[in-house]
Design a protein around this nucleic acid. Structure first.
Length: 941
RNA sequence: GGGCGCAUAGCUCAGUUGGUUAGAGCACCAGCUCGACAAGCUGGGGGUCGCAGGUUCGAAUCCUGCUGCGCCCACCA
């Protein structure tokens, strides 16, 4: 893969040039011992911005496109941890694909969030100027909202940028801008033409504070304390006209309700048709108290006999279940409420009262009439508006609806056919369940901030939808009569955001962007908007992109549902609880890379995660480790030459540690590439963490130190092979880490570039993904080095156990299980001696053990230190005994397994053989440990 | 009421299709100013994998039930 030199920009060159002078030693001069994220982030953002490389198309117009649409945050919003996580995941995908050479487009933008934004501005207007929107008027009020949007609306995008998000800022969109209006109107009119839009009086969720209808998906259910009241309605006459009490029938019907004031709007009572208690009353007429209305008793299968008294009052105007029940029995709908939640003239003497006052009044009045039964304290669930937190009232109101069932079909098929895949997969069930039971969508909102419904009426109230504005007085396209008004309402916010994947690309115009970047490949979002947004976008894709071939309509191929970020106690982070952790605070405290890396390390495939500020230390420490390792390489390795290649094209190295790290690098490139590709973000981060910290820093850098100049021994000069390997590993490592930690990797890259003899891309973000060229797995090097690691670790342990200073050279004898291992350790001898600070190393399958000394035995590797009486006998004994206990226990398990005939008969031969070998190893190890312990006992006495 | 998820070391979490000795970070203990890094280095201790059954030669892993916690959906008034 070639480095895309064509993305070179003068600015990046300049920044790179400034970062390091021609002499390599200077590359690390300006690197502080502690990584300072603030400075680096500012500099890198400037570099990226000036380079302009986030803009899609351009010199990459010949590449394969890869598109991601940001879930547009609300303009009113501030960045929270969910955004930070989601922004990080999307940026990882985008940066990874950019490095792979794709023409990536990540479209940023914001959502006008009708209700939320209007509420914020209304609140401020009242707080600052004591004005309501009605006092200001529609035009002036909208002016206020726009002014507010201009001033605060981009704050959240700026916060995304601080996180390092590499969005194409030149394509920033807003759901209420003119281009979106054209899309919204086109979509509305098309639905209208297809007969999928209708207006009707329906029971809707009414928010009495915001005075608008809200959709089912905008309400939440809160558990509140309340009372369950029993009300007694007197029987007026039975079905056949006979008086109450005839044939032993009850003289009153007792019903229960948590909202007694709604009884004013009752138009019937329902009982189960087979309920013995009430069967005689079916068809009877009741006299509804307080309003003296005559209402029937009807039989309804839907009534649960076991619940309460088995009789249910029916209030079709203010209860969803009753609305349907009332419709079944053709009962009149009585609306009791004004828009603000006060009672209207239907409420008789309670007219004008608030819901709460009316409730008190009704209860008191019924009590006085001795028609109030039992009153119980209960906990029940109450619908509450997401936005205003006020109790939602179901009310009957004229609204616009979209018929959803036809739109849902292709969206269901998309998941069933695999055109759309959820990750984690389980969310597809949630998505499908909603779509298969989808209800019609109430899309009108009684707000001002939003897309005005493109419907006009003539003097007879005949409605028509239009792509263009119809002037007052102009002829109605259907009736020819003059247009007298436009619909006052605006559309639900989601009626614009469901068009996001293509409206942002210019639809309904046939734009080049739309042709090139639709459909997108990846969408990452929160589970809570699967219904509100994800499902609707898929429906919209199939409904409006229908000129595209079937397989190009689905707006995204993968929908990744990210983890929910919870606080340290496992609660949702929310403003009201005040338990949120501000990502910007964290970025300032720990750095953007640390925030990104920590979030990815902490969230495994959409599993909810508990977060507390200290968690970011992990990322900060890691970034600092990488920074310092880089600082070391740049300051000690001198110029970094391009590694020489052998005849077979592989990097030519002979030193064990070189072969080993390149082998580990090959493995890491492969596994990390696969993990990013699969969107297994956490796996990739874990792999990178281990490779960077354990393989590269702990072992390779330590192993290679003596081959580098600039150290304590002035006579040592840098081995060019070591420098080449260091350069190569660092270069690839930076690229591998760049998607998750863009700032630090770019900052180091700029310096590496200055120190490297190989021509590197002027900026890492536009460089190329490591292709593993010249690298290969070297199993023998990995095995040999593992032996060295085992011996060195044992030596260190014995040193501590015996209080021998770390750098004091010791004589060591190692006994290994077989000749192959002996040969392996001999190949790693030089390294072992050096890293273990050994004076001498004797290796064999059964070498003569030093007379007195400390011994460690693990995994068949027996390491003895010749210490001549320095041994702390009790510590040794304790350690060996603990070891022996463990071995005994394991031995028992393995022996039991092997003596089980079933095991030998049924387990695969390979497994049985492995167990046999294990038995032999353990037996040998036990024998040795017993011997060592008895020898120790002899010495102690 | 229905659905989904979680329960593994003191804490936060990994643990692929069942198969040698269940891992990491933090915390803890002990020792380290060694020329990248104390945001560090080295070593160590710590888990009957929520409970009870079942399937299997073999279960943290698969099945059933239970308990606890969380989320989503739902018109039991």
């Amino acid at each position: 893969m070639s480095t895309p030199g064509n993305t070179t920009s003068a600015a990046a060159d300049m920044a790179a040039g400034a970062a390091g002078a021609a002499d390599a030693a200077g590359a690390a001069d300006d690197m502080a011992a502690r990584y300072e994220p603030g400075q680096v982030e500012l500099a890198m953002r400037t570099l990226w911005k000036d380079a302009g490389g986030y803009t899609a198309g351009g010199t990459r117009a010949d590449r394969k496109p890869f598109t991601v649409m940001i879930p547009p945050p609300n303009v009113t919003g501030v960045l929270h941890m969910g955004h930070a996580l989601n922004g990080t995941l999307q940026d990882i995908v985008i940066r990874h694909r950019r490095l792979l050479g794709y023409d990536v487009l990540w479209v940023p933008g914001t959502d006008h969030a009708g209700i939320a934004t209007q509420a914020v501005v209304e609140k401020r207007l009242f707080a600052e100027r004591k004005l309501t929107r009605e006092q200001l008027g529609r035009e002036a009020f909208l002016g206020e909202v726009w002014a507010w949007k201009q001033k605060h609306g981009d704050a959240i995008l700026e916060q995304f940028a601080r996180l390092g998000s590499s969005c194409d800022w030149s394509r920033t969109r807003f759901t209420l801008e003119p281009g979106m209006s054209a899309a919204v109107r086109e979509a509305f009119v098309r639905l209208w033409e297809r007969g999928l839009i209708y207006r009707g009086a329906r029971l809707v969720n009414w928010d009495c504070v915001l005075q608008t209808a809200v959709s089912d998906d905008e309400i939440e259910h809160a558990t509140r304390k309340g009372k369950l009241y029993q009300l007694r309605y007197p029987v007026l006459r039975l079905a056949d006209g006979s008086p109450p009490g005839t044939r032993g029938t009850p003289t009153h019907v007792t019903v229960a309700t948590t909202r007694p004031e709604t009884m004013l709007g009752d138009s019937g009572v329902a009982v189960h048709p087979e309920d013995a208690r009430w069967v005689g009353l079916i068809g009877a007429t009741l006299r509804l108290p307080l309003v003296d209305r005559d209402i029937p008793v009807v039989a309804d299968e839907g009534v649960t006999r076991e619940f309460g008294t088995g009789a249910v009052k029916i209030t079709p105007g203010h209860d969803v279940a009753d609305y349907e029940r009332g419709a079944r029995h053709k009962l009149p709908i009585i609306s009791l409420l004004n828009k603000d939640g006060t009672l209207n003239q239907e409420a008789g003497r309670f007219t004008g009262l608030s819901r709460e006052k009316a409730r008190e009044g009704v209860v008191k009045a019924l009590d006085e009439l001795r028609l109030l039964g039992k009153v119980e304290e209960i906990e029940h669930s109450v619908p509450v508006s997401d936005r205003s937190k006020s109790v939602i009232e179901p009310v009957v109101s004229e609204q616009w609806f979209v018929k959803m069932a036809p739109l849902a079909q292709p969206a269901i098929a998309a998941v069933k056919s695999g055109a759309l895949r959820f990750k984690p997969e389980r969310w597809s069930k949630v998505y499908l369940d909603w779509l298969t039971n989808v209800r019609d969508w109430c899309i009108s909102r009684q707000l001002w901030w939003g897309h005005r419904i493109p419907v006009w009426y003539d003097e007879d109230n005949v409605a028509v939808a239009s792509r263009t504005d119809l002037a007052l007085g102009s002829p109605h396209p259907k009736t020819g009569k003059p247009i007298v008004r436009q619909d006052e309402d605006v559309l639900d916010t989601w009626a614009s955001s469901w068009l996001w994947p293509f409206a942002t690309l210019g639809w309904p115009a046939a734009s080049a962007d739309l042709a090139r970047y639709y459909p997108t490949q990846f969408l990452s979002t929160a589970s809570e908007i699967i219904y509100l947004w994800v499902a609707r976008m898929v429906m919209a894709g199939y409904a409006f992109m229908d000129e595209l071939p079937e397989d190009k309509r689905c707006p995204f191929a993968v929908c990744y549902i990210h983890a929910t970020v919870l606080d340290g106690q496992g609660r949702r982070m929310s403003k009201s609880l005040g338990n949120g952790i501000d990502p910007i605070d964290m970025i300032e405290q720990y750095g953007a890379d640390a925030v990104r890396f920590s979030l990815v390390m902490l969230t495994k495939e959409g599993q909810d995660t508990k977060l507390s500020p200290e968690k970011f230390e992990m990322g900060r420490n890691f970034v600092n480790k990488l920074w310092n390792a880089s600082r070391f390489v740049l300051s000690r390795a001198g110029r970094l030459p391009e590694p020489a290649r052998g005849a077979d094209g592989s990097v030519a190295v002979t030193a064990l540690e070189d072969r080993w790290i390149l082998s580990r690098l090959a493995a890491t490139i492969e596994s990390v590439s696969a993990a990013w590709e699969r969107y297994d973000f956490n796996d990739a981060a874990q792999l990178l963490y281990r490779f960077t910290w354990n393989d590269f820093c702990d072992w390779y850098v330590e192993a290679v130190k003596p081959r580098l100049g600039g150290g304590p021994d002035a006579s040592v000069t840098t081995d060019p092979v070591a420098a080449a390997v260091l350069g190569r590993v660092l270069q690839d490592l930076l690229a591998l880490l760049h998607p998750v930690a863009p700032f630090v990797t770019e900052a180091v890259w700029q310096r590496l570039r200055a120190a490297s003899d190989k021509p590197l891309a002027p900026a890492l973000y536009a460089a190329s993904w490591p292709d593993g060229a010249g690298l290969r797995r070297d199993e023998r090097a990995e095995a040999d080095l593992a032996l060295a690691q085992a011996v060195v670790s044992s030596v260190r342990k014995l040193r501590q156990q015996s209080n021998v200073a770390e750098r004091k050279a010791v004589r060591v004898t190692v006994a290994l299980p077989d000749e192959a291992a002996v040969a392996g350790l001999r190949r790693a001898e030089e390294l072992t001696v050096r890293l273990g600070s050994l004076e001498s190393l004797v290796v064999g399958t059964d070498p003569p053990r030093p007379a007195g000394g400390a011994v460690d035995l693990a995994d068949g590797v027996e390491v003895s230190l010749d210490l001549e009486g320095l041994v702390d006998v009790s510590a040794q004994r304790e350690d060996l005994q603990r070891n022996l206990d463990k071995v005994e226990k394991q031995l028992q398990g393995v022996a039991a397994k092997l003596s089980n005939e079933q095991f030998a008969g049924k387990a695969p031969a390979e497994v049985v053989a492995r167990e046999r070998a294990r038995l032999a190893e353990l037996t040998d190890e036990r024998q040795r440990l017993v011997g060592l312990l008895s020898a120790l006992a002899g010495r102690a006495s």
